[in-house]
Nucleic acid binder design. Structure first.
Lengths: 334, 334
DNA sequence: CTGAAAGCGCTAACAG
DNA sequence: CTGTTAGCGCTTTCAG
């Protein structure tokens, strides 16, 4: 690897002169500047970012923590983060935590020692004190797609409102008995979506029937059994509102296997709008959340924090941004 | 950040002693060792990996280049890579290249200056001299899921054989006129799959009809039009073999929209077996490739190269591994 | 067994 | 305008 020293030697100047021209050339004579740029070219010199990082205290690297990239909502988010990061000259380290808080802690502990500039955490569960600690320790952090509160930067959607709208749409199109597929209750966004469902029922004077809410047992796959059991039990329903697209896929599968036709026998709606949701049969009606934009904004906010911190030495006041969702009616609803 | 110096001061030893106990304690008296470990604990000291990297010349970081994480086959591969990497104490940087060779070059140029220990490239196109150069320059590289040859480590599947088997299965179950959805010809694996299709036809004495092969125009979405046009043109067919799962999804969509039923009117098979393929309606019959294992093995091979290089100073002889594919019959075929 | 010192490649005072 | 110097935090000879 060719170092600055060699460039300096070839250009017959000192390393500091080389360093100067490489970082803006303020106060360097044209003559020497030319010699340096020439030497740089001839040696095909590229500065060692690692050494720079050690000296400067930042790495232009951010960490992105997701539960699992295999969950369909994350590829788009990750892509948004990566694009925005790259545009700003940042590199992203991808961390799959598998919902395992210990794994996440280990990951963070390792990353901290490398001068990671900041963290986007899309995997936060309640009791994640290690994340709050990170923020308290002065690390730029932005939360997304899971839990967030007012103490840290975040970008999300109005989950309660989205669920309210989804349920409302089902009601408006004639559904009277709507199944709700509820995700893991530790994840607050599911609670919010549940609330939206209940509020929509109440405001349209539809009775709330406990038997119609399906609670995830272990893994998304469990909804297959849950819905099948409901069907067999004879409880009637004419609509299904899934709290996420991946769950909707398995619900749809169960409905098909039970011989029910969609949307004639039952309307299905969901929240997310993952890429495949428009392609499957039937195309899924959804409340769409702008996944890519969420990732993009999260990255931009993080970088803004990093810049702010490098200027002032402290983190800016936290701010949570809510992005708009949109109802997209396709063929799974009447 | 607490440094080794502070630990040394608290423990009343020199920094070299601290360094020694932290890296195995060879030749350190029990007494001092205890003093050091105690100081480490009390100060909650964590070594600065960046400084270590600068000194040692490696970072325990690998780069993973994919065309786009939004392509359904990559989340599983990425996950495999990340899991294997993490197990070995490595961190992965995710790079989406968008099939843009210039973007890829820029990415690599940036990464090289950071002492990246190696590259897994799942995005290689022909004429990727910058990748070969990387390898020539002594960087550990493993190729996967795209182009590869004998000059570099690689992990892949037998694409020709997989396509042969897929087509053969369609023939065996009664198809006589099989549409083939051909991906971008610059990507060799699609050529291989095309060859397998043709060989199966030949060996079963079915005529090869050019009109039955659909050539991707721009983007996977183009297959919708392509298939619709074929249907309208009146050319008969009773089977569709898609060269990848994402393409199969749009083909399925077109078939549905045209009012054809699957598999009664036409059988559909594909190569990949992405997670959602078992969930959609109808569940897709596929030749499955072990995506996760491919990623896992790629990472393990890369790390093996890194280790080998750090011991011997050179790269080990390249070796390409072929993983087994498997026919999975679901509901989209007769 | 232990510490002093050099140096990885770079930046940023500090003199001149 | 330019060069010398002192580190960033760590590992690793090299003496003792």
């Amino acid at each position: 690897m060719v170092s600055m020293k060699e460039v300096a030697r070839l250009a017959n100047v000192s390393v500091s002169t080389v360093s100067r021209v490489l970082s803006g050339s303020v106060g360097v004579s044209e003559k020497r500047k030319a010699r340096v740029t020439d030497a740089v070219r001839r040696l095909d010199y590229h500065p060692n970012e690692l050494a720079k990082s050690l000296k400067m205290g930042h790495t232009h690297t951010i960490a992105l923590m997701v539960p699992s990239i295999q969950n369909l909502i994350f590829p788009a988010i990750v892509r948004g983060v990566e694009d925005a990061a790259r545009k700003a000259g940042y590199t992203v380290i991808l961390c799959n935590t598998d919902e395992d808080i210990e794994e996440e802690k280990r990951y963070i502990a390792r990353l901290r020692t490398r001068f990671i500039d900041g963290f986007i955490v899309a995997s936060m569960l309640p009791d994640s004190d290690h994340i709050r600690q990170l923020h308290k320790d002065g690390f730029p952090v932005v939360l997304t797609s899971r839990l967030y509160d007012e103490t840290m930067d975040a970008v999300g959607i109005d989950n309660e409102g989205a669920a309210y709208e989804a349920t409302g749409y089902l009601v408006k199109t004639g559904c009277k008995r709507i199944v709700f597929a509820m995700g893991r209750p530790e994840i607050p966004l599911y609670k919010d979506r549940f609330e939206g469902y209940k509020r929509a029922l109440k405001e349209t004077d539809l009775p709330y029937d406990e038997r119609l809410v399906l609670h995830e047992r272990n893994g998304t796959g469990s909804f297959y059994r849950l819905l099948m059991d409901l069907i067999r039990s004879g409880v009637q329903f004419d609509g299904v509102f899934s709290s996420s697209d991946p769950k909707a896929y398995v619900l749809l599968r169960a409905l098909h296997d039970a011989g029910l036709s969609i949307p004639q026998d039952v309307s299905v709606i969901s929240i997310d709008n993952v890429d495949t949701s428009s392609q499957i049969e039937p195309p899924l009606s959804v409340i769409s959340q702008p996944l890519y934009e969420i990732g993009e904004l999260a990255a931009r906010k993080l970088i803004r924090q990093i810049d702010y911190k490098s200027r002032t030495g402290t983190l800016p006041p936290p701010q949570v941004d809510m992005l708009k969702t949109k109802l997209i009616v396709r063929k799974s609803t009447r």
